[in-house]
Amino acid sequence: MSGNSHENHHHVSTAGQLWAVGTALLILTIITVVLAKFVTIPAPFDIITAISIAVVKAGLVAAFFMNLYWDTKFNAMLLLMAVAFFMLMVLITLLDTLYRVDVVPSF
């Protein structure tokens, strides 16, 4: 059962590691604000950059604050599954909403 996973979950991060992650998150926040407010990036790349930075930040939080990096891989899989099903929901809904003849049917 779970007897052999002892070394997996009692990982103790060093204070240095946690502060490094926190600092990285802060820097990424500053970068994303600067890029959005002071640099003109042509659409759609502005959204793509902003979301990419958000994904990196989320990845840092999940991997090091939520300990997924050291945890059993199954928990990471759960997170990815949630994201995958969210994407599925959005993509299939867009299949309808983007291809309607009339955006909102006029009745």
Binding site: T29, T32, V33, A36, K37, T40, D46, I47, A50, I51, I53, A54
Partner: peptide
Amino acid sequence: FPLLYLIE
């Protein structure tokens, strides 16, 4: 945050 506040 980027989705609501950072749309230019």
